[in-house]
Nucleic acid binder design. Structure first.
Lengths: 336, 336
DNA sequence: CTGTTAGCGCTTTCAA
DNA sequence: TTGAAAGCGCTAACAG
């Protein structure tokens, strides 16, 4: 660790002012080819890298953004993260990774740290709260994008999943199989996505002229265990159900396991459909029919929305809704 | 977006010098309680946050580290990332997430960007190359930790998995089941972990007095598809094999699928053991016996090593080797 | 205990 | 096309 090479080191060695070096590294046109050439050579020789910190202080832009996710080890969010990082990288931005651990207090704290770091923008994924304190910090960022969670007042550009249509497609597919007694493992009652998926389910059922019994609707935690428990409860009370539409793939895997324990054959006795299409979905037995959510794409879109804001461009569509696609596998096959 | 509140704004409002404010925000003792109180009140009222950028320029430390992973959406690395981020956060560091996409050129580029951002340290996960150019950039960082990949000269503190012992345990378990014809799906020939696991396998077999035929050793890409293909090849040439030790869980899942296609019952006809214990492992059918790698723990250890370097402490153990644990499930159950 | 001065490495503005 | 001066917001070093 020797001292960093600075812009004035380069300037001296090239026999120019540091301003000229600055012009060269920023690709300004007003430098003579000769001078530029000489400066570039010195930069090459010395291995000079401009300090983004000093530049950030001078320009008050850091080419840095913050990404807040509940948990990066959740495959749903790590895919989104990949999309964000890839697009950010292409545009010369570095990304701070912050886990909020679903903890509102920590969510605030990471936002404070991002504020101190002077990020140019923040992408918030799966945000849970919207307290005044939260609203307050958010206001202080130059740009904000929300992913998978709508603020009540739609105050920020947002990337959403078309949960309603996705659920309709999924349930429609089940109905096409000839099943009519379709239960739903809704997921958590407070979840925005869960409620959208539920309403898609209800619309599909209603559209087919089937009246849904209250008991067919079962809330659960969005995990394998949650799905397993909920399925056991549901099938105990309503053994006549011949299909289950699940909040996500993890819940669906729980449902598969419960059906195994209850000796219900899938799909013959009961069909099962998930949501998300995480990696797992294709690999369980039976392979899961599910609604694919384009997560990497969501990340890209989110970063693009952020970039536009940071460039001061107007955002035509403040809410981008990405489409899902039904992936048909063995847990709810196509009936021919 | 109004102008940021700066340290001198606070100083003026509190009727002190900015130096005193600096002392307060850095918790220096030499400030009178009264003054401190007054300054804190102004900070509270104004919502002042010190600029980490300005501070970074002044101190040449940024409280920021870089984390380079091949792919954050790979669950192996996203778990490590979680461990790193959690520990970093506790110590007041923010983490730049960089995907290298297994691309040596991009790996270099992200390191350059991290250098410009003046990170205090870098954690490199699953690094593939060690070209002179790479060595060169690395030298310019104040602190470096390697994860899951040893540089030939052990020049940097490193967190490794005890692949050798893990493989020995796994194969030992298979042998205890009474199986003697154990094939191995090694993984990629260039992979350091793969070679360590292979040597653990060979030692276990030799220790049991079993001579391994060359044909039992099958290289493959470390994916489900790779495992599937390799298994088909292997079992075609060596149908007598009664167990497979796989490079990782994905390969093992591929093996399970191949066995399904070949009508080989697991574990009766053939036992299958994986490595890593990603969350998938418990959810496939049959559930996978596998060697658990404590990934979050690895991330924590890596960050701790980095912290010690950044504090200028001596590193007693330049290579930390984390232990694996055999998780026995149905694909290779315990024989009682 | 508190304030003053200088400077971190860059860009912006103005002048040449 | 080039350079000089000032300043971004903070801390280090010194003085009082």
């Amino acid at each position: 660790m020797t001292r960093r090479v600075t812009i004035s080191d380069v300037a001296k060695l090239a026999g120019v002012s540091s301003q000229t070096v600055s012009r060269v590294i920023n690709n300004k046109p007003e430098v003579s080819p000769k001078t530029r050439q000489r400066v570039l050579e010195v930069i090459e020789q010395t291995g000079y890298r401009p300090s983004a910190v000093a530049r950030g202080l001078a320009t008050s832009r850091t080419s840095t953004i913050g990404m807040v996710v509940p948990d990066i080890s959740n495959p749903f969010f790590s895919d989104i993260a990949r999309g964000i990082e890839a697009t950010a990288y292409d545009q010369g931005y570095n990304v701070f990774l912050c886990n909020s651990n679903e903890d509102p207090e920590r969510e605030l704290e990471v936002l404070f740290s991002l504020e101190e770091k002077q990020v140019d923008g923040v992408i918030l994924c799966g945000l849970r709260q919207k307290t005044p304190a939260l609203q307050d910090v958010l206001k202080r960022f130059p740009a904000i994008v929300l992913v998978n969670r709508l603020m009540d007042d739609a105050s920020y550009p947002t990337v959403m999943v078309d949960n309603h249509k996705g659920a309709q497609k999924a349930v429609g597919h089940i109905l096409n199989m000839g099943r009519k007694r379709v239960g739903i493992l809704v997921g958590p009652a407070f979840s925005y996505s869960a409620n959208q998926r539920k309403s898609g389910y209800l619309d599909a059922m209603e559209g087919a002229g089937i009246s849904v019994e209250d008991g067919w609707i079962q809330y659960c935690t969005p995990t394998v265990e949650g799905g397993e428990e909920a399925t056991k409860l549901l099938l105990k009370r309503h053994p006549q159900l011949d299909a289950l539409f699940c909040f996500n793939d993890l819940v669906a895997v729980g449902a598969i396991q419960a059906c195994g324990a209850l000796n219900r054959r899938i799909p013959n006795d009961i069909a099962i459909v998930g949501f998300d299409d995480v990696y797992l979905a294709a690999l369980v037995t039976p392979a899961l029919t599910t609604c694919r959510v384009p997560r990497v794409e969501m990340g890209r879109q989110a970063m693009n929305l952020l970039l536009r804001q940071m460039k001061g461009q107007r955002i035509e569509t403040p809410v981008i809704t990405v489409k899902t696609r039904l992936i048909i596998r063995n847990s709810a096959p196509k009936v021919t």
